[in-house]
């Protein structure tokens, strides 16, 4: 037995295909996020509370004020994609916190000394976070019927894909900040400063078309705006009633650049490009050694 142990291949011999090894390490990081997610059911329940409260309390309340302008259901449908994004936001951002936490607790070091590229680790981490976030969003998505969004497979598939992309964008944003930060407290401070404005300036609660110019300008540089808008346009494409409503429901006007409506496809591309660039920046920083 002892002899067999010593004679087994040493580290050098079984050096596997480079890509296969990176893939395996990356998927391990992804799986670790999923395990953490599945083992923290209480955390899931709590973080779902806020978006549901938002949708079914704040949403219903506000929709009464709009009752003069279109049916109250319209506002609920308008709000719905934003609430999906909100549901995904907390878990997405928490990936950043977990990077900082891994650094503080030491597990990060275990990964950093492994024979894999650091960008692989970061990508695995972000995809894991995005998956977890999209799962959370999907729970809210399942309640779509309550606000009048039809249950259609193609619509849900499209929404899920967009939700996943939005989750990735938010995850990567958290990662960009996290890789520069050593202490968990600093990270939370940075996030508080960042997330609230990002939510308010995303056209999530009120349409860009109704914003004053300065506010609209800020909203148009926010990647979340395009994530929300793409989902909203996807819903209205399948559920044209609100746009065609008696009021003309201007709240459903798509985001426009100087009068040119941004098509949902372009919005999706914009969010994807943002995610890719941010991921590249975060990887670069993460790969730096002293």
């Amino acid at each position: 037995m002892t002899h067999a142990t010593v004679a087994l291949p040493a580290a050098d011999r079984h050096a596997p295909g480079r890509l296969a090894a990176e893939w395996r390490a990356g998927s391990m990081v992804w799986r670790r996020e999923m395990i953490h997610f599945l083992r923290s059911r209480a955390g899931i329940a709590v973080s779902l509370l806020q978006p549901l409260l938002f949708l079914y309390v704040l949403g219903i309340g506000l929709s009464r004020m709009f009752s003069g302008a279109g049916s109250s259901d319209d506002y609920m449908i308008f709000l719905f994609p934003g609430v999906l994004v909100m549901a995904a936001q907390a878990p997405a951002i928490s990936v950043g916190a977990s990077i900082v936490w891994d650094r503080q607790s030491g597990f990060l070091r275990e990964m950093l000394v492994a024979p894999v590229r650091r960008s692989t680790l970061l990508i695995g981490k972000c995809l894991g976070g995005a998956t977890v976030a999209a799962c959370q969003g999907a729970v809210v998505l399942a309640s779509a019927g309550l606000v009048g969004v039809p249950y259609r497979v193609d619509l849900f598939a499209a929404l899920l894909a967009e939700l996943l992309l939005a989750s990735l964008a938010m995850t990567v944003l958290g990662a960009v900040i996290a890789v520069r930060i050593q202490r968990i407290q600093t990270f939370h401070t940075a996030l508080t400063v960042l997330t609230a404005p990002m939510v308010f300036l995303s056209g999530l609660m009120f349409p860009v078309s109704a914003m004053p110019a300065w506010m609209a300008a800020l909203t148009l540089v926010n990647p979340l705006t395009y994530a929300v808008d793409a989902m909203r346009q996807t819903i209205t494409a399948f559920h044209p009633a609100p746009a065609a409503g008696a009021s003309g429901a201007p709240i459903f006007d798509p985001v426009s650049w100087g009068g040119w409506d941004v098509p949902p496809g372009l919005s999706v591309v914009l969010v994807a490009v943002f995610s890719a660039l941010a991921l590249a920046a975060a990887s670069r920083r993460f790969s730096r050694t002293d």
């Binding site: 050096a15 030491g106 070091r109 000394v113």
Partner: peptide
């Protein structure tokens, strides 16, 4: 290759 040949146990836990 260096990392493949190293095993590390740090002062602080990395589990």
């Amino acid at each position: 290759q260096v990392r493949r040949n190293l095993g590390l146990v740090f002062q602080e836990t990395t589990l």
